[in-house]
Nucleic acid binder design. Structure first.
Length: 551
RNA sequence: UGCCGGGUCGUCUAAUGGCAGGACAGCGGCCUUUGGAGCCGUAUGUGGAGGUUCGAAUCCUCCCCCGGCAGCCA
């Protein structure tokens, strides 16, 4: 049950296995995914979602979606909506549990009062500069705040008045009284509440004091009865603080486990940077198909299955890693190879006239050789076709299997043709090919023993449908742009190529947004959901086919 | 520099004192009416030095390297 696919267990499963053995938490498992609604979810969040949901599923436990919405200055309803959509799309089942940390503000407030009464928290009048300078450094201890020893009564009074809104932003904080000399800076009297007179996307103007993440996060997990609070490595240093809070309160105390966040080559993953790409117009919104966001991958043609499988492939560990984007591409190719129907589409058309063919006919084509149940379709053929410009070369290099002057090639599902004449314009560019076809070589007829090395795709010029095709490449020129201060200068200027005169086979006329296809020999493509209209089909290239042809 | 964490093929990840394995990428071959897919094969790795042990990626010591932390962000 712990490793349904027979994969080896990651270290978190081993921890949980041990917990189950000793009946910790009455042998129950309850996980959660706790995003802050200050941006769209990215593939790194997908890793976390798959991990947390996967654990709940594998141990017959529960999985919550909980918004960590403690900072009204950065959070918006639009982000809440997108996050819910993305988590659902990924297939992580939170049942009816869409929860909000901000719904626990009153409980947290009461707990803060409890700590004040125990002498474990105090109201501090230092401003943010003063707090910073008295915190000490990595190597020197901090200094106690002059307000550290206020009486319980005074603290209670001040804290209540903070809540009532008597003080302006930044003038007072509530701090935990721990140890200003702790070698762990997080324990140097961390701030629990700050004053922020700001409308909250969910709580409106009910509050003007907001809990910090450090104070809120562990409380939220505790309130929800989370057993295993799984988070990323940067919170490792905070664990002693969460432990301290929960122990002071004597409430349910989840076990925090940290794992290494995902880094993907040739992209950036921080929400701050993704927001900048969006805001400054480097990309076409959060769901731009070049973005590593879940909505970007969805629009690009990725499937939830492929992303889940990717999460499985990369595993979970504690060491920092930079995962090769090839692993993600493998996951989507693997899925689409099995499930996407094949069609023919010519991205850069070159006209071919078959001089000895008259009339027209329909040829039978297989929809998916990996899945016979996908059936067949009929593709119209006539004496005027388009083939890919790249599939013809006047002066081919050695090993070129496609059309050359005087050479033969098979038209997929049709006939073998021979190039008789090359027609050029004034500039010397090839604009048309005159070819003859061999009627004995009809695909599947068995009437010919002729063998040719090359098979190329084509569409009937008379029947073709016009389409726009968008080819995407990596967004950055360097493997790890996030490590570079000057990361914006590493944006790849040709990451999007728009082809507006592609010709696709007529069966595609009825395709719907997000429908996925393999354009034979070209790659996997998906009908764009943003720009496709009744009049105009727009396709996004999800990923190329692996191509072993090297010139 | 204080504290915390981490170093295994090019990349990601297993091996929990007993043959360093898998996936991706690469390379070679087979097959193929997609130069796709599939199949077969193949090279490449335990940061370093000592120690314990019949036996060490694993345990011990020292060293080196990498990441995180000094927001009223999360």
């Amino acid at each position: 049950m712990n490793n349904p696919e027979g994969r080896s267990k990651n270290f978190i499963y081993e921890i949980i296995d041990d917990d189950m053995k000793i009946n910790k938490w009455e042998a129950k498992v309850h996980t959660r995914f706790p995003p802050e609604p200050n941006g769209y979810l990215h593939i790194g969040h997908a890793k976390s979602i798959c991990l947390n949901y996967g654990i709940a599923r594998d141990y017959n436990g529960k999985f919550n979606l909980r918004f960590d919405d403690t900072n009204p200055e950065k959070e918006e309803q639009e982000y809440v909506d997108s996050i819910i959509e993305d988590v659902k799309w990924l297939g992580a089942d939170f049942e009816d549990r869409i929860l909000y940390g901000s719904d626990y503000f009153e409980q947290m407030y009461q707990w803060a009062i409890e700590l004040i009464k125990k002498g474990k928290a105090y109201v501090c009048d230092l401003n943010s500069d003063e707090i910073r300078s008295s915190r000490g450094t990595l190597t020197e201890p901090g200094k106690n705040s002059p307000f550290r020893n206020r009486s319980v009564e005074e603290n209670m009074d001040l804290f209540e008045r903070m809540r009532k809104g008597e003080f302006p932003n930044g003038t007072k904080t509530l701090r935990a009284k721990i140890d200003m000399a702790s070698p762990n800076i997080n324990l140097r009297d961390p701030i629990m509440y700050r004053i922020v007179h700001e409308e909250h996307h969910r709580q409106g103007s009910d509050w003007c004091i907001y809990p910090t993440y450090d104070w809120a996060h562990g409380n939220e997990d505790s309130i929800e009865g989370i057993t295993h609070s799984i988070c990323t490595l940067e919170f490792e240093n905070h664990r002693p603080l969460y432990d301290w809070f929960l122990d002071q309160l004597g409430v349910h105390h989840p076990q925090q486990i940290e794992f290494a966040r995902l880094n993907l080559s040739y992209t950036v993953m921080s929400k701050r940077r993704l927001l900048q790409l969006v805001k400054e117009g480097y990309v076409d919104g959060w769901d731009d198909p070049r973005m590593p966001t879940i909505s970007g991958y969805r629009r690009r043609g990725y499937t939830p299955e492929s992303i889940r499988n990717f999460a499985e492939i990369i595993g979970v560990a504690k060491r920092d890693a930079l995962t090769d984007i090839a692993l993600l591409e493998y996951a989507i190719r693997d899925d689409l190879n099995k499930h996407a129907n094949r069609v023919m589409a010519v991205l850069k058309p070159l006209k071919v006239v078959i001089t000895n063919y008259t009339g027209e006919e329909e040829l039978e084509a297989v929809n998916n050789p990996e899945n016979i149940e996908a059936g067949t379709r009929r593709v119209p053929f006539c004496n005027e076709l388009y083939i890919e410009q790249n599939d013809f070369m006047e002066n081919p290099p050695k090993g070129f299997h496609r059309l050359i002057p005087g050479g033969e090639v098979r038209l997929r599902y049709a006939y073998i043709i021979k190039c008789k004449e090359v027609i050029k314009n004034e500039k010397g560019e090839v604009i048309e090919l005159r070819c003859s076809y061999d009627p004995e070589t009809k695909s599947g007829s068995g009437t010919s023993t002729k063998k040719v090395k090359g098979v190329i795709h084509w569409v009937s010029a008379k029947h073709a449908v016009d389409a726009e095709v968008r080819l995407y490449d990596r967004l950055f020129t360097v493997e790890n742009p996030g490590a570079d201060e000057d990361w914006l200068s590493k944006i790849y200027p040709n990451s999007l190529e728009i082809i507006n005169n592609a010709k696709v086979e007529p069966s595609l006329k009825s395709s719907k947004p997000l429908d996925k296809f393999q354009f034979e020999r070209m790659g996997y493509f998906c009908v764009d959901q943003k720009y496709t209209t009744k009049e105009k089909l727009v396709f996004n290239r999800t990923v190329t086919l692996k191509d072993s042809w090297k010139k």
